[in-house]
Design a protein around this nucleic acid. Structure first.
Length: 203
DNA sequence: AACAGGATGGACT
DNA sequence: GTCCATCCTGTTT
């Protein structure tokens, strides 16, 4: 399958967020290949977006990779126990990103199951299967994504995104999640997901 | 189904 | 010292 190139990411997050739906996130780990289809994303539009970590041009150690070139990862810790995985968009100096909020498992079910619940996949309950990767913190656990992958070039051999099957689906846009502090920006419909997909975090 | 509360630590002021 | 781009569990409708 074809890895997605730099120019794909060198556009506004609002476009990239939509187009990442249906693409496949791959992590080649020591325990094998884990992959999953991207089913829910959120656009963070940088300087003018009150919900973005880079709002107002804020430039700290944490957000530094958002100012780098397109197609790198931005991984940050949230609430002391979870990580969130983003793809950096736009050219160097313009700090935008797309948060990957939910994915649908494709390969590496046993590893994901162990990473999330320390159990074999066939031992999972129905709710555990449904909850395997349907949230930004959950998918990072399942795919073994942590701070050590911050700034990783997503066109490398370790962590990358591939073209999907090109199947047809409808895209739903909705308000972003968990950003009530962001003033009027909290109501922007900058979250996108594949309609009726069971792994979407919030309908 | 909806809500309440707690876990837990790094980044930032 | 305060704030999180979250998740899980228990309790109440």
């Amino acid at each position: 399958m074809k890895t997605i190139g730099r120019e794909f990411y060198n556009r506004d997050s609002l476009i990239v967020a939509r187009e990442l739906l249906g693409k496949v996130l791959v992590h080649e780990t020591e325990g094998g290949r884990i992959s999953a289809k991207i089913v829910e994303t959120e656009a963070y539009m940088g300087i003018e977006d009150k919900a973005a970590h880079s709002y107002g041009g804020k430039r700290t150690t944490r957000v530094e990779v958002m100012y780098g070139g397109p197609g790198c990862s931005y991984v940050f810790m949230i609430y002391g126990m979870y990580y969130c995985f983003n793809v950096v968009t736009r050219e160097e100096g313009i700090p935008q990103a797309v948060l990957i909020r939910a994915v649908e498992p494709a390969e590496g079910f046993e590893q994901m199951s162990a990473n999330r619940f320390q159990k074999a996949y066939h031992q999972l309950s129905k709710s555990q299967i449904k909850g395997l990767t349907n949230g930004p913190g959950k998918l990072c656990r399942a795919l073994l994504i942590d701070k050590s992958l911050n700034g990783e070039d997503l066109r490398g051999r370790k962590l990358y995104i591939e073209e999907g099957e090109g199947e047809n689906f409808s895209v739903v846009s909705a308000k972003r999640i968990g950003i009530d502090y962001a003033g009027e920006a909290k109501d922007y419909q900058w979250r996108f997901y594949i309609e009726a997909n069971p792994y979407v975090s919030v309908k």
